[in-house]
Amino acid sequence: MRGEVTVAVLAVALLGAGALAAADESAIRLHEGPGRDLAAGRCAICHSLDYIVNNAPILDRGGWQKEIQKMRERYGAPISDQEAQQILDYLAAGYAGKP
């Protein structure tokens, strides 16, 4: 069933975390680096950030590029071309082939 939830509404939901499955994912901290807030902000719209951490040992820069493309094209992630580049640079620097 489709919930018509906008990004703005979701941001509120994230703060309240009432409708969401888990309330304590805020414990996940991504590495410092340029683009961190953008990556965290966009990715966490739909999923917790452990998806990044858990896939880091598997994905290289090319792998992350495919993942970002999939999120944009198949899952409708609201990420512009410019933002996608910044997120890719961030993930490739801190999460490519690294646990």
Partner: peptide, 14 residues
């Protein structure tokens, strides 16, 4: 088959 669980974004396939 459809279930009650759904996507955060309207653009994400249910």
């Amino acid at each position: 088959f459809d279930g009650a669980d759904g996507p955060v974004l309207a653009a994400t396939p249910d």
